[in-house]
Simulated scan of single mutants.
Amino acid sequence: MRIIAFYSPKGGVGKTAAAVNIAYLASRDQVATLLWDLDPQGAAGFYLAGAQPVKGRKLSRLLEGKAPIARFVHDDVYPGLDVIPSHPSFRNFDIRLNQDEEGSHSLKKLLAPLSEETSLVVLDCPPTLSRLTEQVLELADRVYVPLVPTWLSLNSWKQLQAFVKSQKLPAKKLRPYFSLVDRRKKLHRELTESSDPGIERLLDVAIPYASVVEQMGEQGQPLEVLAPNTPAAESFRRLWQRIREDLW
């Protein structure tokens, strides 16, 4: 089982859209995929209309060993794509992890029962620097970091690098890529077209800013279903190919 995460310390950078679209594309390529929405805002549920949390299935029951992880999984939201939707109780995830001194409820142990039937886990992570972030960075085989080509977003990238270094986490797992690129803007063009933007391990894929991506939430569908012939859909297909080449 391979595990990837989409993470950024800055919100509003297209992280969830990428996680949903990559999870769907992986499942379409016959890769048994689980998407786990770890963000308590639950945006992935808007992009996948069939993956709303079931009432009463709180994270606390999972972390206390009172319910197996399989009870939280929505099977086959699309063929080959299972989803663990977010729940408001996920806001307490960090508190629970900090209280778990023996690590008996770490993300790795929580996911272990699903390893036989799942080839790829996609984690959609909240924009925080926390214990949960540390576990994701420790656990994931790769962490894909969307960067809007602005100085503020690039500063968040530097903050992430500093955090990784301070916690002695593996920086080599980080895979940044440009997201929400608007080529009408000079800075966006300059940064994305630069031969050396100064970002280590930057993927050669840029996800454009596109209104059709926003429509994913309205329609409750991944882009490959909603609008497969758009430049945005093609950019996500290229991103998935880079990810697949990187993992296997």
Rank of each mutant, 00 (worst) to 15 (best):
V143H: 06
E200V: 13
E245C: 04
G12S: 08
D75R: 15
R91A: 15
R28Q: 15
G14R: 03
P208K: 03
Y24L: 08
Q135S: 05
R91C: 07
V122M: 08
F6G: 04
F178W: 05
K55S: 10
K185A: 07
A206V: 14
G14P: 01
W157Y: 15
C125T: 12
L107C: 06
Q167L: 00
N92W: 08
E245P: 01
S194N: 11
D37T: 07
F6E: 01
L203V: 14
L154A: 10
E64H: 11
H74A: 09
M1L: 06
S166H: 01
E117A: 11
K165C: 01
W36I: 10
L239A: 07
Y177N: 02
T230G: 02
L226I: 08
K109N: 12
L123Y: 03
S115C: 05
E134Y: 12
R71K: 12
R184D: 05
A17G: 07
I22E: 02
Y24M: 06
G50E: 14
P79H: 12
V136L: 07
M1A: 08
K55N: 06
L107G: 09
A162C: 08
L132R: 08
Q167V: 00
E214F: 01
P9L: 03
K58N: 14
R183C: 01
G50K: 05
V77M: 02
K168W: 07
A32I: 01
L25A: 06
R238V: 02
D94C: 00
